[in-house]
Every structure is written in structure tokens, then in C-alpha cells.
Design a protein around this nucleic acid. Structure first.
Lengths: 344, 344
DNA sequence: TCCCGTTGCCCAAACGTTTGGGCCAAACGT
DNA sequence: ACGTTTGGCCCAAACGTTTGGGCAACGGGA
């Protein structure tokens, strides 16, 4: 890798060693495409490349960043990296970034406005070239302000205003969930809708209600509960729903973790999930299929969403005109709604 | 935040605006402690600070990095950020880093040697000041080599050789698990031990076996199965254990996800977890308590481990002598081993 | 009065890179 | 033989910061 105590290898050390000028080395090592020929003879170029490889030359980002004004750094702000959904999206982002020689910096916003501001400021202080936000709120003054300031960013998972975004088609996902439960005969259903400020929960809920309405069934407002996206939130909401005597026969949680909480609540109430009450989640977290009672869910290509978000951002940074993308979800029926395994 | 179309605010722009020299501004804005007084009069210093704040000056890391040779960047390599355990540790790292004005860069190694090398090289190319590895292997030639090359790093979660590390006291944790199962009367027990190269699994297993041996019970080798740390791995291992007629009465999985897989396998075999068979995990993931059948686990202060790792690294970077730390785990007994809730 | 120590600031170099513009010689066209 | 192109390379400036060393002016002690 690197010699034990060697001085850092720079363009100058390579140039001196070869009796060339530093700029020649720089040109050769940068754009083999157009400038490659102009920069040096094939022979010289070859010698440069060989020595650079041998010494393990890696351009110093401080030097190039200073000169070019670009850092090749991408900031990624998410509610929490320990949230499996966002972590998976982040992996997609990071993977695509790596392929382009970009480095990502992740930070948690905890869905808190104050934290968002300070973390964003830190990322900008690091001179990131662009940002990806995974914590957009439906009415997001902060993002509007940022956009007005000329900061370049795209949104992922959650949409907001008409800032460019890559999200699952949550409206469609909500319809798929409704279709599934309706096919199973559930007409008295409830929704654990997540916090009201997240487009994911809101759109999934809206799609779900749409489908029922289109089928002539109106779901009363009392059947839609807002909650946190986590297990505790889901458990509390499900508990409220199930303790009533006219409890719903099926519950759609807009997030797998909330659904797992609902599973626990159902058990506390002595209900057999899949038989006495149907419960389904959303996102098809790896855990869903592996639970003791496998959880019906709506699969979302999270990794791919992350990749696309980074691609979109690089196109934005390149000055191209870009448009938001919605990726289609797929239903994954399992035992928690009494459905069999997928397959014929 | 930043003016719409303003030129970037630099030391020079501040200095010019105040009719001062750039170096004066730099000194004032850097060390108010010692140099503060030497640098400028109280009055001048005040003017500088006020203008800097007003313009929202943020030092350019490229400039300072170039000059000082330090990037204030910390690289963090983990198997996967989407693994809840490592994600939580990472959050601790990042939190502590933020408090010190450091920025972390996370990367996935997927526990693959080739990926580790390339990702580490990328981080070094970014000129990180130090590294934190969460994917150490018991016999880790790569880390040895890195240390020999003078790269500064600490390990987290997993230990290796005598590189400095911050880990849970896994040996103790294993003993706690054994003690719990033994107290419940289980003498025929099995271990789902995780992959053999991870100190976590190995030490937990060793501690577990130690305690049984100390109590006069020898667990046969066939009762210790290696597996992946994830749900699928746990399910497969548990399936092997439970399909035999002389199946164990209790299973200790060294990781909650493997334990969840085991829960599923138990269900597949028609066994009631907590009654017919006891199953326990490790790490006390937030999920453990929320599962339909709450999972007995061993709680580990993951967030704190992350914080400590970063502190250790900063001390190392400051040239101090440092020593590895082990943090004590706590048993969290729940229904999956037939234990009641915690409490008196 | 002279000297010395502070105070308060400025000067300049250096870190490593990129890039617009040279400049010399060889090759080519007529 | 003479102009023009082109290949192949060098020059130098600039990006923003830190930091060791100045250098005046001023105040105080002898």
C-alpha cells in the first residue's frame, strides 16, 4: 500500500523523478481521453502512469478541491441511519457514489428542524458539492430556503413541494395494500398512518383510502391513526384500535416497524394474527419475511431508490435538466394477513 | 444562511473589509485562548468576530487541510450500515465526532476482504486523520499491515490482536446468558455462534461455555453451530438443531437477528417458544422487546461504545497512550426464555 | 535619555492541484 | 527554401489557509 515512512507522494515528486513538469504529470493522470494525447507522448504518458501506480499516487483532495472548488463530497441527511429503511437507501446512494468517485457523508437529523439546520450547515461547511435529503417534510420551508440560496440537492424517499425527488410510488403502494385486504374480504379496516408531515405515510394512506373509496367503501376518519414510524408507535396505535369492541378486522401500517408493534399489540389482546385480525406493513424489510408470523408487506426497491437519487443529483450537478422519479412497489403477501406464500 | 449570489466569504474578504491583514483575522478566529490576545486588540478582535459571524464565515476545509495536513475527517468502516447494531454504534461515533468538530465518513465492507481494502484505500485517499474499524477479524493481517504502515485506527465492537479497541465485554455477556439459562434449569443447551472470524461471536460463545463448564456441565461440540449473523443464518442453524429428536431445550444465539431466525424455525417445528424451547439473543436490539414474543437478550451499550471509540481515537491522534476498553453488558430477561418481565 | 519588553499588527511562504497560455522543434506543404 | 501547423512539453498563477518571523510604536524602568 504505502511505504512505511515515505514522504507523501505528490505530483511534484513524480514529476521530479521523471524529469518532467508537474503540469504534464497532472494532465496525463487526469484526462486520458481528450488531453491525454496533447499532454505528452504515448511513451512519456506510459512512464508517468507506471510510476504513479508504483508509488501508489492518490491526488490530494485538499489540493484539487482548493483549485477546482469542488470537493467530490455528497452530503446525505436522513432521520436516522439506524433506521433500516433509510440505511438501505443510503447504501444504494453510497454504492452509486463510489462508482463515480464520489464520497458520501451521512448525518442524522432525527426529524428535528433544529438538528437539520445545524447538520446541514456542517455539511455545507465541508463544502459538499450537493446534498440528498431523506427527511423532507410535506411543507418544508427549510428546503425552500435552501433551494433559493442556490444549494443543490435532491430528495429521497419522501417528497416535498416540487423539489426533485426519487421516491417509491406510495400512492400506488397504498392502493396495492387496499386491494389485497379487500380481496381477502376486509371491509372494516384501519390505517396506522405514521406522522402527518412525511409524504410516505400520507401518500400511502391516501392511496389506500382512494382504493376503498373507488370500491364504494368509505373508511371513517377515526380509522386513521397517526403515530411514530417505530415499533412503539405502532403498538400504541394498534392498542387503541383493538381495545374497542367494534375493532377493525384488518390493519394497514404504513411501515414495517409500526406493523411489528401492531403484531405485539394483537398478541397482547389475545388475537391470532392472520386469523382473528389481519395486519400488514410496508417496505418489506428483510425482517418481514423472517418473523415468526411472516408479515405481509409492500416491497419497495430501496437500494435502487438510493442509487437513482445519487444519479439524479449528479445530473443536477452537471447542469442537466432533471425530473423526479417514482419507483413501483410490489405486494408481498404473507401469513399475517392470512395469505399464503407468494407463488402459484 | 448564505446570501443568494454572494461570492464565497474568505479570510481575505473579511480582512479587506476591515482593512486588516488576513493573518490577523485567521489568528483571531482560531485560538481565542492563547493567541487571541497576541493577535489583535480586544476591540479589533471583536470587530473581526462580529463581521465573520454576520457574513457566516466558514473556513474552507480545502485551504486549511492543505496547509495543516489534517482533514478533520474520520473514516468508519463497518460490515453494513444497515445492520442495526453497527448503525447504532456509528451514531455514537458520529455524535461524539460532531461535538469535536470532526466529520465521519462511513463505508460498508460487507465483511469481505477485497472490499475492505478498496474502501480503506478510498478513505485514505480522502486523507482521513484516522479510522475506526467495526469489521475486525480475529486474525487480521490487513489491520496488522495497516498499523505497520503507520495508519492510525481503533477497533469497535470486534477486537483483533492487540490493536486498541472498544468492545462489549462479550465473555462476560456470554456468562450472563449461560447463568440465565442454567438458572431456568436448562442443561441441554445449544449455541448459534455466528461466523468464526468475529470476536463477538467467539467471545460470547466462549463465555457461555465457560460458565457451563464451571458449573460442571460440558456442552458437546455438536451443540455449537456457526452461522451468519442474520435472520436467515439463525433460522438455518436452529432448524438443524431442532429437527433432531434429542433437540436442546434452550438455544443461545449470539445476535438478536439470528435469534429471530431461530424463533421462526421453532415455530416451523410447532414448538412454543418460552415453553417448549427457550431462545435468547444478544445485543438487545430495540426490536427484541417489541416482538410478539419478547426476546430475552443481553443489552450492550452500543451507542456508548461508539462514543468511546471516537474518544479513544482522538486521544490516539493527539499522541496519547491509549488502552482498549470493555463495556459491561446487562441481561434483559423476557418471555422467549419463559422469564417474566424484568423487575423485582 | 536610553534600553527593553510588550502590544498589535503585517509579510511571506508553503501546502498540492489545475489550467490558460506559452515556446521550441520537428514535420509538412508548396 | 520558407511559412505554417502540430506535437510535446514547460511556466506561472491561483485557490484559502496557517504560521514563524518580522517591525514599528508605545510604555515603563533605570
Amino acid at each position: 500500500m504505502a511505504d512505511p515512512k515515505a514522504r507523501p507522494v505528490t505530483l511534484r515528486s513524480i514529476a521530479d523523478q521523471l524529469g518532467l513538469h508537474i503540469s504534464t504529470v497532472s494532465r496525463v493522470l487526469n484526462g486520458p481521453a481528450e488531453d491525454g494525447a496533447r499532454a505528452a507522448s504515448g511513451d512519456t504518458a506510459e512512464r508517468i502512469r507506471r510510476l504513479a501506480a508504483e508509488l501508489g499516487y492518490q491526488p490530494d483532495p485538499h489540493g484539487s478541491g482548493l483549485r477546482t472548488g469542488r470537493s467530490r463530497l455528497i452530503g446525505v441527511l436522513v432521520p436516522r441511519v439506524s433506521d433500516l429503511v433509510l440505511a438501505t437507501i443510503y447504501e444504494g446512494i453510497d454504492e452509486a457514489a463510489g462508482e463515480r468517485g464520489l464520497t458520501t457523508i451521512a448525518a442524522n437529523s432525527l426529524d428535528d428542524d433544529e438538528v437539520r439546520r445545524t447538520r446541514t450547515k456542517m455539511l455545507l461547511a465541508r463544502r459538499v458539492d450537493g446534498l440528498i435529503f431523506g427527511d423532507a417534510r410535506l411543507d418544508d420551508a427549510f428546503l425552500d430556503r435552501l433551494a433559493a440560496d442556490g444549494v443543490r440537492f435532491v430528495l429521497v424517499n419522501r417528497r416535498a413541494g416540487n423539489h426533485p425527488s426519487v421516491t417509491p410510488d406510495d400512492r400506488l403502494g397504498g392502493r396495492l395494500a387496499a386491494e389485497h385486504l379487500l380481496d381477502l374480504g376486509h371491509t372494516d379496516v384501519a390505517v396506522i398512518a405514521g406522522p402527518p408531515f412525511a409524504s410516505t405515510g400520507a401518500d400511502r394512506t391516501a392511496g389506500f383510502l382512494d382504493h376503498y373509496r373507488d370500491s364504494g367503501i368509505r373508511i371513517p376518519d377515526a380509522r386513521v391513526l397517526h403515530s411514530a414510524f417505530d415499533t412503539a408507535g405502532g403498538r400504541a396505535a394498534a392498542d387503541t384500535l383493538l381495545r374497542s369492541p367494534d375493532r377493525p378486522t384488518a390493519i394497514f401500517a404504513v411501515n414495517d416497524f409500526a406493523a411489528i408493534g401492531a403484531l405485539g399489540a394483537a398478541r397482547d389482546h389475545g388475537l391470532r394474527v392472520g386469523a382473528d385480525v389481519a395486519i400488514m406493513g410496508y417496505n418489506d424489510t428483510p425482517l418481514a419475511a423472517e418473523l415468526p408470523i411472516p408479515l405481509t408487506s409492500v416491497a419497495v426497491p430501496m437500494h435502487e431508490i438510493g442509487r437513482r437519487a445519487l444519479e439524479l443529483l449528479t445530473r443536477l450537478l452537471a447542469g442537466e435538466q432533471i425530473e423526479s422519479e417514482r419507483l413501483a412497489p410490489i405486494l408481498a403477501p404473507r401469513a399475517s394477513t392470512g395469505a399464503g406464500q407468494t407463488g402459484p
